[in-house]
């Protein structure tokens, strides 16, 4: 199998006065599942459509193993894509839908049935797509993408509309395909949805790249946060200042009558030790889950790490 690198370089797309994608550059490596993340409207779908030649860039471009999509003969044989949840004629059966594409993709009719079996739609092959649930449409979209047994897979929000079983199915499918050396890019507006699936993350906001690393490196960016309260708030304030902790006052709220601090940096254990050493009695010491989602928000809202 050809190991295809997806290379996005200086990609820019303007729709009139609106800039959807601006000077975007990144690489997607084979053998890994890459998450393409950003809030809704960040330009993810536009980037995928630009990569696939469905819309023309204002500047820059995207290549697969050095070639533009439109320049590849029988491209769907090398690059499989599922872009929107519902690009099916409701009156056509699942099998007929695949068969309309098979000649151009360059596969036999037999392959259409095999792929339906692979995505778990064998029993529904002769049913009209109009009767399909969102989850079934999602599976059929993946079937279309896989039809040509491609080395590169681009999926836009593949977990949308899938039930938990479907999500776990697509996870193991993508993992297996990455292990075979394929290049896989999946977009999502929720990091949590793909957190257990991806190896690498590319995060964009407002059409610009804000982060590009492995998931492990992204995790390392997380700094622990702890809610701390004491029966002597001024003493707690002095302790935080003395230790040089980044602390923000939290107002009293549900379950908390004392004023508290949100401390970023030290772990809960370090805070507890310091309080003990200075003879301060803590009334609350709650470690907040330093989730990836929080980093994700920080990255995408501020337009980059400050």
């Amino acid at each position: 199998m050809v190991e295809d690198v997806i290379e996005v370089s200086h990609l820019t797309k303007r729709f009139g006065s609106l800039t959807a994608v601006e000077d975007l550059s990144f690489q997607v490596q084979p053998g890994r599942v890459t998450g393409f993340l950003g809030p809704n409207g960040a330009g993810k779908t536009t980037t995928l459509r630009l990569a696939l030649g469905l819309i023309r860039p204002t500047g820059g471009g995207v290549t697969f193993d050095g070639q533009k999509y439109a320049a590849i003969p029988r491209p769907a044989h090398h690059i499989g894509a599922a872009l929107e949840a519902a690009s099916f004629h409701p009156g056509r059966t699942a099998l007929a839908h695949l068969k309309t594409l098979a000649p151009e993709v360059g596969v036999s009719d037999k392959r259409c049935m095999e792929i339906l079996e692979l995505v778990g739609l064998k029993a529904d092959a002769k049913r009209r797509v109009g009767q399909f649930s969102m989850g079934m449409r999602g599976r059929l979209g993946v079937a279309v993408a896989l039809l040509g047994d491609p080395g590169v897979l681009l999926l836009d929000e593949p977990t949308n509309g899938l039930d938990p079983e479907g999500i776990s199915w697509i996870r193991s499918l993508l993992r297996a395909m990455a292990t075979q050396g394929r290049t896989i890019l999946i977009s999502s507006h929720l990091l949590a949805e793909v957190e257990n699936t991806v190896d690498d993350v590319i995060i964009i906001a407002k059409g610009r790249l804000v982060h590009n690393s492995s998931l492990a490196d992204l995790r390392a960016l997380a700094r622990p946060q702890t809610i701390v309260a004491a029966n002597d708030p001024p003493a707690l304030g002095r302790l935080a200042a003395g230790q040089g902790w980044a602390a923000q006052p939290l107002p009293a709220g549900p379950g908390r009558t004392d004023a508290a601090l949100m401390v970023t940096g030290p772990t809960a254990a370090e805070i507890g030790q310091a309080a003990f050493a200075s003879g301060l009695a803590l009334t609350q010491l709650a470690s907040q889950v330093a989730g990836l989602e929080q980093i994700f928000f920080r990255l995408t809202e501020g337009g980059g790490l400050k």
Binding site: G53, L54, P75, L83, S87, F88, H89, P90, H97, L101
Partner: peptide, 10 residues
């Protein structure tokens, strides 16, 4: 029905 997308991809 947006099938023009898979058509132009193929």
């Amino acid at each position: 029905h947006k099938t023009i997308t898979p058509t132009f991809l193929a």
